[in-house]
């Protein structure tokens, strides 16, 4: 495509850059600065170099949280992405009936994040909840407060319920943009459904899927609101994720360590994102 080269286009970016500078760049630089200090108040901070980083990296509980966050992300992505893409594929031939389904899956996206936990907890409450009563009726002792596996199930279910809509909507958007002749040509060549998906559809929705995977990765890796509201990291830290540790540091006013932790989290997230983007662009040029 012959897009003209003009550095005057930078002027059009000025409002966005100013806004991002104020709400994202300055705060991020401030976190970076705090992370090398022992912060008592904003005006009373002592330079301590890399001490916080050394303390956190040397702390086994950081690595345990890291492992739990990574595990949660893996579970969430490996359920939500294939499920969402599959649902989008099913929706593809439904024409105007696709719209009601898209509206349905979009519903959980507009629920305030702190109420997602509230809605699920009342649903599984054995006294007032529909699912809770049913489980109790079946004689299943579902105890999300004290059984770690049950807490995990609730968080994974609630997270899947919350975000499956985003995966379906964006995959459907990618899939429905593929011109029908591509599929017809493949069908004439006798390609199987799987082969059509692998060689025709997947490459063409990779742009839409990338953003889904990246967004789902960060939001699940840094899950905070749902996890905290469901069981506050319990039982026995079984659902203490990286963001819950970070929030605990902020809550206890150890700002320096909180900042170092925050920088480490950003570093992990951006390394994964950068690697992902690099792999994708090298695949495209090949």
């Amino acid at each position: 495509m012959n897009t003209p080269h003009s550095n005057r286009a930078w002027w059009l970016l000025v409002p966005s850059l100013a806004l991002m500078g104020f709400v994202a760049v300055i705060p991020l630089l401030a976190v970076f600065n705090y992370s090398f200090h022992d912060v008592f108040t904003v005006n009373d901070a002592y330079w301590i170099g890399l001490e916080w980083y050394a303390e956190i990296i040397g702390d086994p509980s950081f690595w345990a949280s890291f492992g739990r966050s990574a595990l949660f992300s893996t579970i969430a992505l490996s359920i939500q992405v294939p499920l969402g893409v599959w649902l989008a594929l099913l929706l593809l031939k439904m024409n105007r009936f696709a719209v009601p389904v898209l509206m349905l899956v979009a519903l959980p996206l507009v629920v305030p994040w702190n109420m997602i936990a509230g809605m699920w907890l009342s649903l599984i409450n054995p006294e007032i909840g529909l699912a809770g009563k049913a489980l109790a009726g079946l004689g299943i002792n579902f105890d999300y407060k004290f059984t770690a596996v049950h807490t995990w199930i609730v968080i994974v279910l609630a997270d899947t319920w919350h975000w499956i809509g985003l995966v379906v909507i964006l995959s459907y958007a990618g899939l429905s943009a593929i011109p029908e002749p591509f599929r017809q040509a493949a069908a004439i060549d006798g390609a199987s459904r799987v082969a059509v998906f692998r060689h025709i559809e997947l490459p063409r929705i990779s742009g839409a899927l990338s953003i889904v995977i990246l967004l789902r990765f960060v939001d699940s890796f840094m899950i905070y609101t749902e996890a905290f509201a469901i069981n506050a990291g319990g039982p026995h830290d079984a659902t203490t994720f990286l963001s819950l540790e970070l929030a605990a540091d902020i809550g206890s006013y150890t700002y320096g360590r909180a900042a170092a932790r925050a920088m480490l989290n950003v570093l992990i997230v951006l390394t994964v994102a950068w690697t992902f983007v690099r792999i994708r662009s090298s695949e495209r040029t090949r």
């Binding site: 991020l28 976190v31 900042a259 920088m263």
Partner: peptide, 16 residues
């Protein structure tokens, strides 16, 4: 832009 979209809000909360 991608990097800032992916920066977790909880990270920015304190300096903000």
């Amino acid at each position: 832009l991608l990097a800032f979209r992916l920066t977790p809000p909880v990270v920015l909360s304190l300096p903000v």
